[in-house]
């Protein structure tokens, strides 16, 4: 079984600007988890997962083709204060090879930051 160590796919980012994580590749993956950590005086926004099938990157993470991204149903959460959140996806091979986290801000304070970590389990 392939295990990929937890990977930081969104370093601490100022939430007021909105944020999109690096895409996480899911080739030969049957389950994955993503964890968001957000902290700040005031937090107001929503966060969700997006999937892409036609996105392409080389082995160095250089984007060869910026794919089309679609929201994964049921993944969206409104966040209104500091905290953490986890998306637990599986088991079964996902039908898409790429996933990313998108945060949309609706009024957080400038000190609010967001980080996202990904973890995949493969075959």
């Amino acid at each position: 079984m392939m295990l990929v160590n937890p990977t930081l796919i969104l370093p601490a980012t100022q939430m007021i600007l909105g944020a999109t994580s690096q895409p996480q590749q899911l080739t030969q993956t049957f389950a994955y988890g993503l964890q968001a950590v957000y902290t700040g005086t005031t937090i107001s926004g929503s966060i969700h997962l997006e999937a892409s099938i036609n996105h392409k990157e080389d082995t160095q993470g250089n984007v060869l083709f910026e794919g089309d991204w679609d929201t994964i149903n049921g993944s969206q959460q409104n966040i209104t204060g500091s905290g953490t959140g986890v998306w637990n996806v599986g088991s079964g091979a996902p039908g898409y090879p790429w996933v990313r986290v998108v945060y949309v801000d609706t009024g957080s304070s400038p000190d609010a930051t967001l980080t996202v970590t990904g973890y995949i389990r493969g075959v």
Binding site: L49, A51, I72, N73, G81, G83, V86, G90, G95
Partner: peptide, 18 residues
């Protein structure tokens, strides 16, 4: 605190837009 936990099945969750 504003925590969440979302369990999603792996298949059938992509919402096609457009």
């Amino acid at each position: 605190m504003s925590n969440f936990w979302v369990d999603l099945p792996a298949l059938g969750n992509v919402q096609i837009e457009g």
